[in-house]
Computed example of a mutant assay.
Amino acid sequence: MIKKRYLWIDIARLFAILCVVFNHVNENLNQSPITKTTVILQLIGRMGVPLFLMISGYLMLNRDYTVQDKMDKFVHHNMLPMVYSTILWTFLFSLYTYFILNNKSIALLLQNITFQNRPMPQMWYIQLLPVIYVLVPILSIAKKYFTQYLGSIFIVGASLLGIGTLTASFTQNKLVPFQWNMSGSWGLVFIMLALLIFGSYLNDIVKSKKTFILLGVGAIISFVLFVINTKQLSPAGMMSTIWYTQIWIFIPGSFLILVIEKLDPYFEGFISKSKSLQNSIIKLSSLTYGVYIVHYVFLNFILKFNIFHSGLLNTIILALFVLIVSFVCVWAITKIPKFPSFVFLTK
């Protein structure tokens, strides 16, 4: 079980939430027209969710769920708070889209509340997390007792999934039909679980020079394939391929978190010299779930004023502004006495 708090995890979380906000700003600012810059920014932004998943795998799969008290702790401190948070925010954002965004449709409101639709774009991830959390103890036990079997399933599955979606992307679904290229929900769940499993092996992988180099080479190859596919498709056609089931998302994302973990001694050596800086990073890291939840509200509000337009500089400025406002808001709310921790999953 992971007991020590590692600074690289907090830094990875902060980098991940920056990617997420950056991605959502890009999706809203740089769509008319979609350019190669839009596509590159989308590729970078998509790295956020894989980082979050691998961190969760690192922290939660390396536990012994066969011990009753540890299982109880997981249920009461991890799984149930996630379920409560998902239900709460699904309900609140359903009302938000109905009253504030003026989507005046009772049928749509009911669909949102009953999880048939996602009331806000970022909620797809939040609504999938309870399913992932339910499977965490099963994956952990399988990892402990069926290590080679479980590893083989996810390595082979992720490889087939990557090849299938890659072939579909290059052939525009002519050789591999949509229902077989795993770009849908089940393929996404599989990749999310694979990233959890991968995250649980980070310590072993980062110590293996051969594996580290192999994954780095894989990341470079996937990027080359991405560039080739970009030249083949129009920027608009390429945008639809930048999803988590594509190898140019989950392979570079996997390598990126290895690099961040490998830099941990440097983080510890530099940042730990300043106690205030270290505490600030730890505190901000604990707020990233809340920032993920609320940032879209601030983004929608700011976009109404038409101050920011397409372009790299506007994307960076708006992303940083939304990020700062979201952090301040979540931090202020968590200061309310007896504030329920499950709302923003604060400890």
Rank of each mutant, 00 (worst) to 15 (best):
W243C: 00
T167I: 14
K210V: 09
Y266H: 11
Q122M: 11
S276I: 11
F198H: 02
G290D: 05
L256K: 06
S94Q: 11
L80R: 11
L263C: 13
V25I: 08
I221R: 04
K70A: 00
L59W: 07
L320H: 04
I249G: 00
A194L: 01
I205T: 11
L299N: 02
V20H: 08
V39Q: 10
L95F: 15
I307G: 01
D204N: 11
F115K: 06
S234N: 07
M54P: 09
M120I: 12
Q172G: 03
T334E: 10
A12P: 05
L88A: 04
N103A: 06
L303E: 07
K70E: 15
S310N: 13
S159Q: 07
L160Q: 00
Y98V: 03
F22W: 13
V25N: 05
K304Q: 12
I282L: 09
N306M: 02
K210T: 13
D264E: 15
Y133W: 10
A12Q: 04
I163Y: 07
K338F: 05
K104R: 15
L110M: 14
L139G: 15
Y6E: 13
Y145I: 08
I293W: 03
L88S: 03
S140C: 08
I11A: 04
K209E: 13
I141T: 14
T346R: 13
Y58G: 01
I281A: 01
M192E: 15
M120A: 14
W124R: 09
D69Y: 12
A142G: 14
K174E: 09
N314C: 04
A332F: 11
Q111L: 03
L18M: 14
K338E: 05
F93Y: 15
I11R: 07
S286V: 01
F52Y: 10
F305N: 06
M47I: 06
I228F: 12
K338G: 01
I282D: 02
Q179W: 12
L139H: 10
G184K: 08
I138W: 12
V67R: 14
M71V: 00
